[in-house]
């Protein structure tokens, strides 16, 4: 967190991110931020399906303060895992959670 990494989002200004490009303060998230972060994950255009996934993650996080488990995500969005990787090629954790402005996933590697 000592690193002074920043992104510059049009119309929002500068935001601190960590080495992996996750925003440091989930409270600063907005749709403009999501669009910017999508670009860093190889997603050039956020379609309706992208937003469905991002909004699901975002709402879940706002309600429970955690990210949903992957099965739950698939079930509740109706997207299978293959579809999730089509939408976010870098995967649900690295891609979708980042774009939705959630904290960086942790756990056993």
């Amino acid at each position: 967190m000592s690193d002074e990494l920043k992104i510059n989002v049009e119309g929002v200004g500068e935001l601190a991110v960590d080495e992996d490009g996750f925003i440091e303060d989930p409270g600063k998230w907005s749709e403009a931020v999501a669009k910017h972060l999508a670009g860093t994950e190889g997603v050039t255009e956020l379609s309706e399906d992208h937003w469905k996934l991002v909004n699901y993650l975002r709402n879940y996080y706002m309600e429970f303060n955690i990210a949903p488990m992957i099965r739950k995500l698939c079930k509740e969005t109706g997207f299978n895992l293959k579809k999730v990787y089509e939408l976010f090629p870098s995967g649900p954790a690295k891609g979708a959670c980042k774009v939705a402005g959630l904290p960086k996933p942790t756990g056993c590697v």
Partner: peptide
């Protein structure tokens, strides 16, 4: 630093992010 999250496109695993403090 605590594990980073990096990877290759299409995969959710196989790479462990690591940064020096």
């Amino acid at each position: 630093k605590h594990g980073g999250i990096v990877g290759v496109m299409g995969y959710g695993g196989g790479v462990i992010g690591r940064y020096s403090s």
